[in-house]
Computed example of a mutant assay.
Amino acid sequence: MAEGGPVTLEVLLRLGRDMLLKAGIPDAALDARLLVERFTGTTRTDAIIDPLRPVDSETSRKILKAFERRTAGEPLHRITGSRQFYGLELSLSPATLEPRPDTETLVDAMLPLVRKTVARRGSCRILDLGTGTGAIALALLSQFPEATATGVDVSAEALATACANAERLGLSVRFSATCSDWFQNVAGLYDVIVSNPPYIPRDDIAGLARDVREHDPRAALDGGGDGLDAYRRIAAEAARFLDDDGTIGLEIGFDQRQAVTSIFEGQGFELLGSAKDLGGDDRVVIFGLPVRSQA
C-alpha cells in the first residue's frame, strides 16, 4: 500500500482488485469487495457514497493478508469464515465441507416430503448423515418450525460447527448432534433421512478444482474406489431407522443416478423421485420402502 496517505475503502478495493486480477482469480473485483466488506463491516453502498472513508492500520493489515490468501488460491468463503446456504449464514471450519448451491437442490426436493409428514403427524423427525456445517438439516428446520433434526458426523469439530450454527440461527432447541460413523451411534426412528455423502472416486480427487481438493476435508470428498462406498453403507442400514412411510434423500454425483439406484433397490428400496441441479445434471435421488409403507 502507498506510503504517507490514509488507507481508504477506495484504496483497498483497488489494491485487492489489482492483486487478484494479476493472480488470475475469477471475479477479482467482486472477491476484493466482499473481503473488504467482511473485515471493515461496511457495505457496497458505503464504498459508493463514502469511498474516502479511512480504514485503521490493523484492519488494513488483515485485509491485505486476506488478499494474499485469496491470490494463493484459498477459497473466498474459507477466508471470510462463512457462506450463505438457503438464505442462512453458516460458519465453516477446516472439518466441514463448504456448502454449495448444488446441495440446495436436495433441500428443495425434500421440502414437499417434510411438509407432507408435518401435515400428517404434526411433526417431522429428520436425520442428517454427515451433517458438516449442519446446512441441510438447518435449512429444513428453518422452513418448518414443527420439525426436529439430528445431525450426525464422525468429526467432533464438524459437529461443534453445526451446533454453533444452530445456536446462532435460533434453531438449537430443535437440533441435536451425534458423533457417529454413519449409523453406528444412531438410535430411534426418523421420518426423513438426508445426506450429502462423500461421492468422489478416490482417484478423481487429484483432478478436482484446486479450491476443493486443497481446502475441503478429504473425508467429505473421498467416496472410495468407485465413489459409492457411503451409499452402500447407508442403503444397508437405513431401513432400521426409517419410520413407516419414511423417505431418504441423497445428493449424488452427476453420473451416479443409475448406480446409486441399483444399490438401494438391492436393499429393498424403491426410487420415489429425483431432481436435477441448476446445471441440468442429476443431483438428488429419493427412496422409500414400499413394503413397509403398505403395511
Rank of each mutant, 00 (worst) to 15 (best):
P6G: 10
T8V: 12
E10G: 08
R14I: 02
L15C: 11
R17F: 06
K22Q: 14
A23P: 13
A23V: 09
G24T: 12
D27I: 02
D31M: 02
A32N: 01
R38P: 01
T40Y: 03
G41Y: 03
T42A: 11
T42D: 11
R44L: 01
A47N: 09
D50E: 11
D50Y: 09
P51M: 13
R61N: 09
K65Y: 01
K65A: 11
F67Y: 05
F67Q: 01
F67H: 00
E68H: 06
E74R: 10
L76D: 04
S82P: 01
Y86T: 00
G87S: 12
L88Y: 06
E89W: 03
L90P: 09
P94A: 12
T96H: 03
L97W: 06
L97S: 10
L97Q: 09
P99V: 00
P101T: 00
D102K: 01
V107W: 03
D108E: 15
D108F: 06
M110K: 00
M110R: 00
A119N: 12
R121I: 05
R125Y: 07
G132N: 07
S142N: 15
A147H: 09
A147G: 10
T148C: 14
T150D: 08
D153H: 11
A156F: 02
A156S: 13
A160M: 03
T161F: 02
T161G: 06
A162Q: 06
R168T: 04
G170S: 09
V173N: 03
S176Q: 14
T178P: 00
W182N: 03
Q184M: 10
Q184G: 01
A187S: 15
G188I: 04
V194C: 08
V194I: 14
S195D: 14
P198A: 13
P201W: 01
R202L: 03
D203E: 13
D203Y: 04
G207M: 04
V212S: 10
E214Y: 11
E214H: 13
A219F: 00
G223E: 09
D226S: 05
D229C: 02
D229N: 05
A230V: 10
R233E: 15
I234H: 11
L242R: 12
D244M: 07
D245P: 04
G246T: 10
I248A: 13
E251S: 08
G253K: 06
D255Y: 00
R257S: 11
V260I: 06
V260W: 06
E265T: 13
E270A: 01
L271N: 03
L278S: 08
G279V: 07
G279H: 11
G280V: 08
D282V: 06
V285N: 01
G288L: 04
P290A: 07
P290Q: 09
V291P: 02
R292S: 11
A295F: 12
